[in-house]
């Protein structure tokens, strides 16, 4: 139990931050550093128990800038490496930092399996819908038609949706936020920190060099209230500057209703704990040109974590067969003795 309360400074490393000026990653770093003292306080966690594991890409430089333990690994494999760390060191709080290329292209496999295993990790996927570190190729989340260095006539690929991947992978915690909405980002980070199991957080983050303005259509201060939908557990999905519109899903088909005409009490409150993932899935698939973009915690359910189940088996086996050491083990079973 830490004796002192930490401050933001305690989480800032002495290394010079080297993202491009104006990069959305700065905002995320600041919010993470800001929220860490509160997380440590609420979870009675010492700073040395916190470890950041990342893959490759702009976002994956993150651990260097945190004054915690950090492991900047290889492209796409951070969830696997973090799984090994978590399974052998369940006492740690482990954060995985990845991006849309790292987590959803080269490393999709590990992300999916980490989520289905419910390893106790907090995964932050910085989605800027572009390859930044390799200087401007389209990513698996780039919108179809996006012109980039590797797609001068526009990409012909259907983008992948991080939230629907997470939901389809049986993730127990799925959230989305935007780097520019600092208060919301903090709130989601705190929720993720409290979740036991894999917490998946997509953070939409602007790459001002190679994909500037990718999220402007719904995330700038001017349009945010009308074009974003802040999901809150137990509340109906209301949005708009004057809270005058709502999203509802009769028979699973999303529609926007005008609250001047539609009675508010007929709106169903959002249930993030629902075992069924259909609502979260519909939200993930909303066309962002026609619908507001859902942000917040879309899913948060309780399931045993991977290491809880594994440690249970170890304890059960020890109880059933007796806790043995190596020598007792090799001297039991089919052995024979030769006398000298």
């Amino acid at each position: 139990m830490p004796e002192q309360k930490y401050s933001r400074k305690d989480f800032a490393s002495d290394r010079e931050v080297r993202w491009c000026p104006g990069c959305g990653d700065y905002a995320i770093l600041t919010q993470v550093q800001k929220v860490m003292p509160q997380i440590c306080d609420e979870l009675q966690l010492a700073r040395e128990k916190i470890t950041f594991v990342s893959g490759i890409g702009c976002s994956s430089r993150f651990p260097y800038y945190m004054n915690t333990y950090g492991f900047h690994t290889i492209h796409g494999r951070a969830p696997a490496i973090a799984t090994g760390l978590q399974v052998s060191r369940p006492d740690l709080q482990i954060w995985v930092v990845t991006g849309d290329g790292d987590g959803l292209s080269i490393g999709t496999n590990h992300l999916v399996h980490c989520l289905r295993r419910n390893v106790d990790l907090k995964i932050l996927l910085f989605n800027n819908r572009i390859y930044g570190l390799t200087k401007g190729q389209y990513s698996p989340t780039s919108r179809q038609g996006k012109r980039t260095k590797s797609s001068p006539m526009g990409t012909i690929e259907q983008p992948i949706n991080p939230i629907s991947v997470a939901v389809a992978s049986e993730a127990t915690f799925v959230a989305r936020t935007v780097a520019t909405d600092t208060a919301h980002l903090q709130e989601v980070l705190l929720r993720a920190a409290h979740h036991r199991g894999t917490a998946f957080v997509e953070i939409m983050q602007n790459c001002n060099v190679f994909n500037d303005g990718a999220f402007d259509s719904f995330s700038t201060r001017a349009v945010r209230a009308d074009r974003s939908l802040y999901i809150r557990h137990g509340q109906p999905m209301i949005f708009g500057k004057n809270n005058d519109r709502a999203l509802r899903m009769p028979s699973g088909n999303p529609e926007i209703v005008d609250l001047a005409k539609f009675p508010k009490n007929k709106l169903r409150p959002y249930d993030e704990t629902s075992e069924r993932s259909s609502t979260a899935n519909v939200l993930a698939h909303l066309n962002e040109d026609q619908f507001p973009v859902p942000l917040g915690v879309l899913r948060c359910i309780k399931k045993p974590t991977y290491s809880e189940l594994l440690d249970d088996q170890i304890q059960t086996a020890e109880k059933r067969r007796g806790k043995k050491d190596f020598m007792t083990h090799v001297h039991s079973g089919e052995i024979w003795t030769i006398d000298g």
């Binding site: 594991v53 696997a80 490496i81 399974v87």
Partner: peptide
């Protein structure tokens, strides 16, 4: 889930 994940997990354990 695959060979790469397997070695990754082992590296994670060694780091821990």
């Amino acid at each position: 889930e695959d060979e790469i994940a397997a070695v990754g997990m082992a590296i994670g354990a060694a780091y821990g």
